[in-house]
Amino acid sequence: MTIHNVLVVDDSKTELLYLSDLLKRQGMSVRTAEGADEALKRLADAKPDLILMDVVMPGQNGFQLTRSISRTPMYADIPIIMCTSKNQETDRVWGLRQGARDYITKPVNPVELMEKIKALE
């Protein structure tokens, strides 16, 4: 599976712009969502090839949203990479247990992120 369409979920406009620019420079199409409700609307509109998920967001956090998406049959095959400032090993393990395929901490290293994306293809 080649990854072309990415949904970036983060409540920080700065982070959304940074990640969108990074991915677009790699030739990917990017849609963004600033929280769980908006992310679910974007999923209903068009299924992405990959979701980059922040953890700390108002309302439903990224762990909860990842669990919800990965347990919904229609979306369970979409890989999710947690992309968060939460850098404890327990957070990484918890994110993976919720259904994330990988976990990267902020500030995001562009080379590391692209390696993680390529490893999914």
Rank of each mutant, 00 (worst) to 15 (best):
A100M: 08
D77G: 10
R101C: 00
D102Y: 01
A100C: 06
P107D: 01
L96Q: 10
E89Y: 12
I80D: 04
Q98L: 08
M82N: 05
E89Q: 10
S85T: 10
G99F: 09
Q98P: 10
R92S: 04
I80C: 05
I104K: 08
I78S: 02
C83T: 12
G95Y: 09
V93H: 14
P110S: 03
N87G: 15
G95W: 09
Q98R: 14
V108I: 10
Y103C: 06
I78A: 00
C83P: 00
P79A: 01
P79G: 04
P107L: 04
T84F: 11
P110R: 01
D77Q: 13
G95M: 11
T90R: 15
I80G: 05
D91C: 12
C83F: 08
R97G: 12
D77T: 12
Q98W: 10
Q98C: 15
V93G: 11
A100R: 03
N87A: 15
M82W: 10
G99D: 06
P110T: 00
V108C: 00
N87T: 13
D102T: 00
I104F: 00
R101L: 01
I80M: 09
R92N: 01
S85V: 08
P107I: 07
G95L: 05
Q88P: 14
I78N: 05
R92F: 05
D91A: 14
R97L: 14
I80T: 04
T105Y: 05
S85C: 06
V108Y: 00
P107Y: 07
Y103E: 05
Y103R: 07
I78L: 07
P107H: 06
L96T: 02
I104N: 04
T105E: 01
T105P: 08
G99Q: 06
V93W: 09
I78C: 08
T84G: 11
I78D: 02
D91Q: 15
Y103G: 01
R92H: 08
A76W: 07
N109P: 06
M82V: 11
I80Q: 05
A76Q: 13
C83D: 07
R92L: 06
R97T: 13
N109L: 03
K106G: 08
I104V: 07
I104M: 01
I78V: 09
L96P: 11
R101G: 00
D102W: 01
G99W: 03
D91S: 15
